[in-house]
Design a protein around this nucleic acid. Structure first.
Lengths: 212, 212, 212, 212
DNA sequence: CATGAATGAGGTTTCATTCAT
DNA sequence: TATGAATGAAACCTCATTCAT
């Protein structure tokens, strides 16, 4: 059986992706060099090209890797949670923890969010955008569900989603600025707080209070 | 008088800045080439370098140009407005209109906001960051003022500021996605609404209602 | 009469040449920019081009200006001095003073001396080299004269000339290194001393002593 | 063993250095283009940059290569020779042969000698100057030794060194002008002769004659 | 004659990608 | 598969020179 080899190959692949994530976070897509990533991964440049077609592909795969790690919890605790309010709470926990462990890599979604033309990493036209889009759609569905349950007042769910994104990201920036001395739980609490204050204003207070 | 020449030079400078803004928005800092900007401005590359020391400097000057256009209104309608709630309302109007006319260039501030390591445009270390920092401080002061007037409950003003930023940017992204068929007023109204729903939760409802 | 204008033009020309000498000495031919020279001369770049075909031409003219200043004294005190030893003494005085007032510009001759391929200022192929060549020839003639007068022993006069150049330049470098706190006369004395010690070994001691 | 590759790489490095020396000699630092050197070395431009950080570094390495070739013999035959007169004789042989095989590249030291402001190759500030400085110091020590041995009269040893440099360079220039038809030995003889005639005048004749 | 803005060729340098070993 | 030397396109930037005013 060639399973040993396959497992080894898979491990190498993961090593490269981890190294790439590290360097991309540190230097950004354009300033990160393939050479640096190779060194970080303890492979030669050539080897990277045995695993990934090119730098862009590598970058996308990093995103997908991160998303994949995110998706599992997301499916279980957000999509799978029938109570909309609890689903959102879980989402916030997930999102903040995720930001924490990937040090802001998630921001990439914001930067490549539809509408940002700012510094588009060259032409991942669809794959990445699609990933984020589907994430937004899923969260939107949670809001829709909440409205269906009459827990929230009617509003454009995508709009709500984007605002949640905005608050989360702003909070993350806030911490990044003030250092990470605050413990994770406190930070999660803070975002949850901030967000639900906002959402309370949108939904009939009673409904929300009931669901908590 | 050599005013004619001077005025002409100033006009050319502005032409270049406008062209640069256009190309930077379209392609991002790293992918925008000086050649492209020159072509857009209908000048030769060398001419750009007669006006600006290098690409980075040109980029910074674009930011400053935009900020300058923003600053006047900001001073008058936000800093100068004694009523904190009205000041924030004005800020939202300003911010949305500004986003509209510069098609998301303002996002650059977000991307260079403290905490973003994503794709750091090389070394505008201080000048740009300082610009945004002072902007954040000014908005924070509005919140402080509001708290002093007991219109808002006590909270970290910088935190509130960042959340406002988050909501504004998220909304902008939302419109960018859905196109600009919605009229400007409607969009301003929407952000104002979204934000004050959030802020209402923070401040005692009575106070806010009075000031509206 | 257009003499006033002509004199003015001549004055401007000289101003430019002086400025050019200054900048060329300070930065070298390749790193000196026309812009810098123009500023130093208090003219615009365009004006320089009304006087000189191009940078190279300007450089050559600087050399010629310096040579011209040198030539007069040279003709009188070296070529015109019938006593060969005294002629050489005068040459040394001239050479050292000249080095002093033009701060090593003379070295340019060394660097463009036949045989140096080092950093050839682009293609003054013949004019400059010719100038230096003729200078060497003239000095050689002094040695020849000395040999004809049986003041020096027979030797290749060009070779003697080059050695004199070598000693002079080496001495100049020595002072440049130790600063110029030594007065001019002392320095002249030192070169004279060094050189005549050398030449004494070549010529029959008696002959030299007589002529001094 | 990966020695084959390593040896190959070293060979390539040497090829590039040789090509660089050739082009630098032919065209000078400023006019030599990296492109030309690459062509001469039969490599692409990029490859040069895999071996050397930049043009300047390449230039310095060429100097160091040459110096290195010089240093060995210098240590053995000049520094290591206890007899000062013989040491100087050896130095002359070395210097002339070296000039011969590197076609005047050594002149670079003269051009970068302290005091030359002429055409400063940008910023090898210290490394190169230091190399030449230490060379001058070593030669000076030989003179000092000679004075200690009472073979030469007292004089500033650095000054003597510079004069030796001057004579050597002048002689080299002389040959460069007249072509290389004269055999190497004859030329060495000529410099030795010229220099010792000069040094004899400085030192008490008896002492020198004894040592020859 | 004086100006100085405009030009653009040409130089240096970087780095993603390939390919022979 | 792993390597890393070689490649060369493409970017930024400089500066001598021109020319309309």
């Amino acid at each position: 059986m060639s399973t040993r080899k396959e497992r080894e190959r898979e491990a190498h692949r993961r090593d490269i992706l981890d190294a790439a994530e590290k360097v991309f976070i540190l230097r950004g897509f354009h300033k990160a060099t393939v050479e640096q990533i190779a060194q970080e991964a303890d492979f030669s440049v050539g080897t990277l090209y045995n695993f990934f077609k090119n730098k862009e592909e590598l970058y996308i795969e990093v995103l997908e890797k991160i998303t994949e790690e995110f998706r599992g919890d997301f499916e279980r605790n957000v999509k799978g949670e029938p109570d909309a309010v609890r689903a959102l709470e879980n989402l916030i926990v997930l999102r903040v923890m995720h930001w924490d462990s990937h040090r802001g890599f998630f921001r990439i979604f914001l930067e490549n969010a539809p509408g940002s033309q700012m510094d588009p990493v060259p032409a991942f036209p669809e794959r990445v955008r699609e990933m984020y889009r589907s994430y937004l759609v899923e969260v939107s569905k949670v809001f829709e569900r909440g409205m269906g349950q009459h827990v929230f007042r009617q509003a454009d769910p995508l709009y709500l989603t984007l605002c949640l994104e905005g608050i989360t990201n702003a909070s993350a920036a806030y911490w990044a600025q003030h250092g990470t001395n605050e413990p994770l739980e406190a930070r999660i609490e803070k975002v949850r707080d901030a967000f639900f204050r906002w959402i309370e204003a949108v939904s009939p207070p009673a409904g929300v209070q009931e669901s908590r």
